[in-house]
Simulated assay, not measured.
Amino acid sequence: MESPAAAALTGLLTGAALIIAIGAQNAYVLRQGIRREHVLPIVAICALSDAVLIIAGVGGMGALVAAAPGLITAVKWLGAAFLIAYGLLAARRALHAEHLDAAANGGGPVPLRTAILTVLAFTWLNPHVYLDTLVFLGSVATSHAGQRWWFAAGAAGASLLWFTGLGYGARLLAPVFARPMAWRVLDAVIAVVMIALGISLLR
């Protein structure tokens, strides 16, 4: 019989493989981490959201999502609109850094409420998060039978470790982003990633 530790390790590695990728959510966490702005609530929302979805998937919610393709389609359109809009804002920041002092800090300060709503949108308007957590991880967990909740714990742990490392580790890049041009390049990259992801959802 599989041990709890083995199931948890499998969940950790499987979760990490799904989470560690260039995406809209990771790009936003990175940007806010470099700015050292609202990092704790942003990391907490990302990790807790993944944990809730993983638990729901292991508990059988994935079958309901798979049976309701219209829900995923609705999320896809909303997510695409949000990503493209955010990408255009990032492109505007990259092209029009009117105030160099503000640009050196990545732009003006973001209110906590705005940061929370933005990271919630990046998390919950991403149709892939439902397919990855509710459907895929939920399906894989069934192969671990009685140890499926240890698998879920490992997958949720991967999310916590990744977002904590990304959010708080990003400050190591602060010296590089002391120059306005570095922020303009980062915003240009974010703009390309966001708009490309949005278009990919529409296609």
Rank of each mutant, 00 (worst) to 15 (best):
G146L: 15
G107Y: 03
A44P: 01
L120N: 04
V58Y: 00
T73E: 12
A8K: 01
V43D: 05
M194I: 01
L18N: 09
A21M: 12
A74F: 15
M181A: 14
W149D: 02
V75E: 10
G60V: 00
V185I: 15
A8F: 00
L120R: 07
F177G: 07
V58F: 00
G59A: 02
R148E: 11
G106F: 10
L95M: 15
T118L: 06
A27L: 10
R35F: 15
L89T: 13
H38P: 00
G154T: 06
I195S: 06
I199S: 14
T142H: 14
E2Y: 10
I199Q: 09
P109Q: 11
S49P: 02
V193P: 10
A153M: 14
V29S: 04
W162I: 02
N126L: 08
A90R: 12
V129Q: 09
A81M: 13
A21P: 08
A121S: 11
L117S: 07
A21S: 14
A67D: 08
G87N: 07
S143L: 14
I34L: 11
A85P: 02
R179M: 14
A66G: 13
T73I: 11
L78N: 06
T118Y: 06
A155K: 02
Y28E: 03
S3M: 10
T123K: 01
G107K: 04
L117Q: 04
W150C: 11
H128Y: 11
L89C: 13
G146S: 10
V29T: 08
G157D: 05
I190H: 05
A103R: 01
A6M: 15
F177S: 05
V129N: 11
S3T: 10
W183H: 05
S159F: 01
A17S: 07
G157R: 15
A156F: 04
L12R: 04
M181V: 13
A188P: 05
Y130S: 01
I195K: 08
V43Y: 03
G146E: 13
I19Q: 00
H128V: 00
L88K: 05
A158K: 10
R35D: 08
V192M: 07
A196F: 13
A47K: 02
I45V: 12
T10V: 15
I190Q: 15
L201E: 08
G108M: 05
L30N: 04
T123Q: 06
L186C: 14
M194R: 01
L40P: 07
I45P: 03
A5H: 06
V189L: 09
M61C: 02
I190Y: 02
Q32S: 06
K76E: 15
H38K: 13
R179C: 08
V39M: 03
G23Q: 08
L83R: 15
V193K: 07
H128W: 05
R179N: 08
V52E: 00
H128T: 03
I55E: 01
A63P: 03
A85Q: 12
A155F: 01
L197Y: 06
L172H: 09
Q25K: 07
A121K: 04
L172F: 10
A80E: 02
R92D: 10
V140Y: 05
